[in-house]
Design a protein around this nucleic acid. Structure first.
Length: 427
RNA sequence: GUGGCCGUAGCUCAAUUGGUAGAGUCCCAGAUUGUGGAUCUGGUUGUUACGGGUUCGAGCCCCGUCGGUCACC
């Protein structure tokens, strides 16, 4: 079985942007790349064939959601996630760490992982957390207690449990269990949470290596990424990048899974996620701090980021992988990416617009359907409305990052960005 | 034909003893960043069927016309 590897193929002269290749047991990912989100083992509204046709090289599924339903044991019994969901390419699973945030302090509130520096929430001096408010996730001594949104049952997820679930699911790349903090948290809490995330990272790494050494299953995660946190705080972010970069445990040497003790070496993470929350305005600063420290020979995944301008920012600062629900979520709700900016397809002006979303777009939707038809489908609440819009959005974002990769090779990244942002209106 | 009931936003309906017309939906617009097929936030809309009358004031009371509906012939 081919295992995990990463190589940088081209790095631009004046800057951090690079193009590379990630090898996984289920195929390669040419980076930088945008990975669509398939939380519940499906990219919502799309068949795997459509995901692939839109240009996606891999998908990202979610540990917590699949653990609750249908259950990781069942997925294992089905022969692993690839077989279960009919996706032959690389799969990444998120650890459930984001749900600590989304089902915790953010639950039922209008807090997202991106905020603006003008957001009044940022000005709240004390922790935004309020124990009286209902939450589905509560942080305990060595893990997180989740209350299922499906049936109300409680589940205690530890780093070991998250890794175990991810091994059962059998993705190619898995993530350490972390705590994604809210942008509204103060430095004191950020530090407390960061130390916890680091303890959990170590335990995730140890358990991953342990499981790798115990079993020689054909469908074992081949790589574990650690996740950098630290909120908007420079010292914390840098500390996190350094600690995770240097974190190692004793384990089998690569290519020797299932043969415990054959040749023990100290090994660390195979790559890194950059997680947590940002203020939109200083996201680039945070990414710069972190990528200055993270090793150049390991891939970096900027978690949950997907606006075009943010993708440029990431690539320019040395990010290799992105995932984001934005193209799929917006698509399902009728917001569509175009080279001139986002449009709302249900707007009255599209009612009789019989042209495609974009004449120059080669996606399935644009080659066969008009704005008027898609607009009508949304208004009529027809299922393929979301499908057609998602196909276009995914194609748009995936190819945007693919274009960035190409321009890294021919040295035109800066020019390409200027050209794009000249017509693209950021809203 | 006779008698009863009814007629309010595009739709379904509110509106205390007569006090200056409102909700849902639809429509219009916006938000959405390791998922939320969710949800939220704004906004437009009325000659209260029509014509008269009583009253300081009428969706509400009175008269007439038109329309709907039920019962009886």
């Amino acid at each position: 079985m081919k295992s995990f590897s990463f190589s940088v193929e081209k790095k631009i002269k004046d800057g951090k942007a690079r193009a590379g290749k990630i090898q996984t047991p289920h195929g390669d990912i040419m980076t930088p790349a945008f990975i669509p989100v398939a939380t519940k083992a499906t990219v919502k509204s799309l068949l795997p064939e459509e995901v692939k046709r839109a240009g996606a090289q891999a998908v990202l599924a979610n540990t917590y959601h699949l653990y609750l339903q249908p259950g990781d044991e069942l997925v294992k019994e089905a022969g692993g996630l690839h077989k279960f969901m009919n996706w032959g390419g690389p799969i990444i699973t998120d650890s459930g760490g984001f749900q600590v945030f989304s089902l915790g302090v953010a639950y039922g509130k209008e807090i997202s992982k991106i905020t603006k520096t003008t957001d009044p929430n940022l000005l709240i001096p004390e922790r935004a957390d309020d124990e009286r408010l209902p939450k589905l996730a509560k942080i305990g001594a060595d893990g997180v207690s989740f209350k299922s949104h499906l049936d109300g049952s409680t589940h205690y997820i530890t780093p070991e449990k998250s890794i175990e679930i991810q091994h059962n699911l059998g993705a190619d790349i898995i993530f350490a269990f972390d705590e994604c903090t809210s942008p509204t948290e103060n430095d004191l809490y950020q530090e407390e949470a960061l130390n916890r995330t680091h303890r959990w990272a170590k335990r995730s790494l140890e358990h991953h290596k342990k499981l790798l050494s115990e079993f020689a299953s054909v469908s074992r995660p081949s790589a574990l990424f650690g996740i950098v946190q630290g909120g908007r705080n420079e010292a914390l972010r840098k500390k996190s990048a350094k600690i995770l970069s240097e974190m190692t445990v004793q384990g089998n040497a690569p290519h020797e899974a299932g043969s415990y003790g054959k040749s023990l070496v100290r090994t660390g993470f195979d790559g890194f996620g950059i997680g947590g929350s940002f203020a939109k305005e200083d996201m680039s600063t945070v990414v710069k701090w972190v990528n200055d420290i993270l090793p150049e020979d390991k891939p970096r995944h900027l978690l949950g980021i997907g606006e075009p301008e943010d993708l440029f920012m990431g690539v320019e600062n040395g990010v290799d992988l992105f995932d984001c629900v934005l193209p799929t979520r917006l698509g399902r709700n009728g917001t569509i990416f175009t080279k001139k900016g986002k449009i709302h397809i249900t707007n009255a002006k599209f009612t009789k617009d019989f042209s495609p979303i974009e004449d120059s777009c080669s996606c399935y939707t644009c080659s066969l359907y008009s704005k008027a038809y898609i607009s009508y489908l949304f208004k009529a609440n027809e299922m393929i409305a979301g499908t057609l819009a998602t196909i276009h959005n995914l194609h748009f974002i995936v190819h945007l990052v693919e274009d960035m990769r190409r321009s890294i090779f021919d040295g035109s990244l800066e020019l390409m960005k200027k050209k794009f942002l000249k017509s693209y209106i950021i809203s």
